[in-house]
């Protein structure tokens, strides 16, 4: 019999090495999250998955599961904190859901609805972020990037290319691509890359596919994100050819 911890009063079994988030999702219990992805080592930057463990805040995607933990996730206090974090992400970039192709498939938008974010909360920063439409098949719209680093991780750890990276610091942190020109068209990116499939928002889009599935019939139109916990249960990465220069990080 496996060991368990408590999540909002319910017993959650876990395997050694799992984090609180991984065990919860595998057991069908949803903890809101953005930068966590079932195929990647968690890195804990968005903080939307923050929970309270024994009265202290912790990042559930990186906190190791341990027998006997008492984890509070779906509480007014923790959800209020998450709402504020989601508001911060909306305020930091330029997110216009009504005109975004990702609407309905967007994790940020789905979280906003699910957590009940009703107001802007912050004065929006309206950063100036030009798009990169250089690639014939792929659009990079930095306005919608939430800096989750999933494409960075996928490109290095799975595609073995390191097409994406982060530059800048603090509020000027931004996504860049690996080309002398700085343009996506001049990178090694290919349509089959894992990095293109993991973007939770509308920052990386395949051209000419935007409305193949009509709005209203998309993933989070059909059922709220909180009802889809099992879809994010941990699973091995699809493909694995780590970038030689990044192996130490994988």
């Amino acid at each position: 019999m496996s060991e368990t911890f408590l999540l909002d009063g319910e017993d959650i079994p876990f395997e050694p090495g799992q984090t609180v988030m991984q065990a919860a999702l595998a057991a069908g219990h949803y903890i809101p999250h953005l930068c966590y992805h079932p195929e990647f080592k968690p890195h804990g930057s968005c903080k939307v998955c923050t929970v309270k463990i024994a009265g202290r805040y912790a990042t559930s995607c990186t906190a190791p599961a341990q027998a006997g933990l008492d984890v509070a996730s779906d509480t007014d206090e923790v959800n209020e904190l998450r709402r504020t974090l989601v508001q911060m992400l909306f305020a930091e970039g330029n997110h216009f859901c009504p005109s975004c192709e990702k609407s309905g498939n967007c994790v940020l938008q789905a979280l906003g609805y699910d957590l009940g974010v009703m107001t802007a909360g912050f004065r929006h920063l309206f950063p100036d972020r030009p798009v990169d439409a250089s690639h014939p098949d792929i659009l990079l719209d930095f306005n919608r990037c939430i800096l989750c680093e999933l494409c960075v991780r996928a490109s290095c750890e799975v595609d073995g290319k390191c097409v994406f990276a982060l530059a800048g610091r603090g509020i000027t942190k931004h996504l860049i691509v690996n080309a002398e020109s700085g343009r996506l068209a001049d990178t090694e990116v290919e349509l089959t890359d894992k990095a293109l499939a993991v973007c939770p928002v509308g920052a990386i889009l395949i051209k000419r596919q935007g409305f193949a599935v009509p709005i209203g019939e998309r993933r989070y139109d059909l059922s709220p994100i909180s009802a889809q916990a099992l879809a994010d249960a941990p699973r091995p990465p699809s493909g694995s050819q780590p970038c030689p220069s990044c192996e130490d990080e994988a």
Partner: peptide
């Protein structure tokens, strides 16, 4: 703090700028 935030996590990256504003 806003200038020195590394930008890794949402609360510090955005929060220090909001505090500054």
């Amino acid at each position: 703090f806003a200038h020195e935030s590394c930008g890794f996590c949402t609360p510090c990256r955005v929060g220090t700028s909001m505090q500054n504003a």
